[in-house]
Computed example of a mutant assay.
Amino acid sequence: MNRITLTKPDDWHLHLRDGEAMKSVVGMSAKQMGRAIIMPNLSPPITSAAQAKDYHDRIIESLPKETIFKPLMVLYLTDETSKNEMLEASKTPEVYAAKLYPAGATTNSSNGVTNIRKIYSVLEIMQKEKIPLLIHGEVTDPSVDIFDREAVFIDKVLSKVVRDFPELKIVLEHITTKDAVDYVKGSDKNIAATITPHHLLANRNHMLSGGIRPHFYCLPILKREYPHQDALVAAAISGSNKFFLGTDSAPHYKNEKESACGCAGIFSANAAIELYAEVFDKHKQMQMLEGFSSFFGADFYGLPRNTEKITLEKLSWTVPKSYDFSGAKVVPFFAGSELSWKLLD
Rank of each mutant, 00 (worst) to 15 (best):
D79Q: 09
A97D: 06
M86E: 04
R117D: 14
I119V: 15
Y120I: 03
Y76E: 08
E88R: 14
N115S: 11
V95E: 03
K83I: 14
P93T: 15
S90A: 07
T114L: 09
A97C: 11
K99W: 01
T107P: 06
N84P: 03
R117L: 12
K99F: 04
K83H: 09
L100V: 06
T106Y: 07
T107Q: 04
T92F: 01
R117Y: 05
Y76R: 10
S121W: 03
M73Q: 01
E88T: 15
M126V: 09
A98R: 01
M126R: 08
L123M: 15
T78P: 13
T92H: 00
Y96K: 06
A103W: 12
I116K: 11
N111L: 07
R117N: 14
Y101H: 11
T114A: 08
K118N: 15
N111S: 13
K83M: 13
E80N: 05
G104Y: 07
N108T: 02
E124M: 04
T106A: 14
L77I: 11
V122K: 02
E85C: 01
S109E: 04
P102A: 02
T114F: 08
V122W: 03
K99R: 01
N108Q: 02
A103R: 14
A98H: 02
L100D: 01
M86N: 10
K83R: 14
N115L: 04
G112R: 06
A98K: 01
G112Q: 10
V95D: 02
A103L: 13
L72E: 08
E124Y: 04
A89P: 03
I125P: 05
N111A: 10
L75S: 10
G112E: 09
G112L: 09
S109H: 02
Y120H: 09
L87C: 12
A105Y: 12
T92D: 02
R117P: 05
L100K: 00
Y76P: 12
P93N: 15
G112S: 10
I119P: 11
G112T: 11
A103H: 11
